[in-house]
Amino acid sequence: MFFQTTPSRLFLLLSLGSVLPWVSPSPIPSLAVSDISHYERRTESGVSVSTVIKREIQVNVDLVISGLGKAEHWSVDVGPTLFQAGTRDPSTMDKFKSKLTTSHYDWDMVKHQLPNPKIIPLGVAKFKDAADQKQALIKVEGIRMKAAAAVKGGNCLDYIKDVLKLLKKEGHITQVVAATYKKEYDANYSRVSKAVWGVDLQP
């Protein structure tokens, strides 16, 4: 449910709530006819036709699980960005009143610093082009926790559910992706809630 403070650079960044720069992946090189649009631009000599190339971007969506026992933490990787909800120091927070803080990180910069993460592929997310992808991820960054950490709806598993719900609503992922995560959520929700927060919550 949280990243503990350790000597590693990643955990220090997470503890301080820092945000690493967002990086867009390279667009898919192949183009279909539907990727190319035209528009007219008036000039002094008449009307010229310009071509705008739009490339659909497809990225992997993975569930990332790190830590064991009280240190177990779930986050979700959407292409270039890792999204998570955590706390700086769970031992000092009122788990029934305080909410986890959401944050995001450049996946390529942090993936090698996680302690033996378990990565479960959920599917793919699709975006019309780089601008569409950037706007979609900005919306995800705006998600905030609605419940306290030890209350149903307030832990890191719930946060991922909210992220995928938004991406599905916006048409970037399919029901298959959401359903694949729900299987993991339903199978582990009670176990993780007990291990991390000491509460018996049902999915």
Score class of each variant (00 low, 15 high):
87 T>Y: 05
80 P>D: 04
51 T>Y: 04
130 A>H: 07
16 L>E: 12
192 V>G: 03
201 L>Y: 05
135 Q>K: 15
84 Q>I: 04
38 H>G: 11
5 T>R: 13
82 L>H: 13
15 S>Q: 11
81 T>N: 08
157 L>P: 05
162 D>P: 01
187 A>N: 09
38 H>Q: 08
52 V>P: 02
135 Q>F: 12
115 P>D: 14
57 I>G: 01
156 C>R: 06
119 I>K: 10
30 S>A: 12
166 L>I: 14
108 D>A: 15
102 T>M: 01
164 L>C: 01
16 L>P: 03
7 P>N: 01
61 V>A: 12
68 L>C: 04
15 S>L: 01
129 D>S: 09
10 L>G: 02
89 D>A: 08
131 A>M: 15
8 S>I: 02
90 P>H: 05
159 Y>A: 03
153 G>N: 14
182 K>Y: 07
42 R>Q: 11
148 A>Y: 02
40 E>Y: 08
198 G>P: 05
13 L>G: 12
133 Q>K: 14
104 H>D: 12
92 T>C: 14
119 I>F: 07
162 D>C: 13
128 K>F: 02
49 V>A: 07
25 P>W: 08
73 H>R: 10
85 A>Q: 11
174 T>E: 13
194 K>E: 13
83 F>E: 06
124 V>P: 00
168 K>F: 14
175 Q>N: 08
203 P>D: 02
57 I>T: 02
86 G>C: 03
18 S>E: 15
15 S>N: 06
108 D>K: 12
22 W>T: 11
189 Y>H: 06
47 V>C: 04
104 H>G: 05
56 E>S: 07
114 L>F: 04
112 H>W: 15
107 W>K: 10
20 L>A: 08
148 A>F: 02
99 K>R: 14
195 A>T: 12
30 S>F: 01
20 L>I: 09
95 K>H: 11
133 Q>L: 14
74 W>C: 06
7 P>A: 00
114 L>K: 02
87 T>C: 10
25 P>A: 14
90 P>E: 01
9 R>G: 01
36 I>H: 09
90 P>G: 07
61 V>R: 00
145 M>K: 11
101 T>V: 10
129 D>Q: 03
95 K>C: 05
187 A>C: 05
23 V>R: 11
109 M>W: 09
9 R>E: 12
105 Y>G: 05
66 S>V: 06
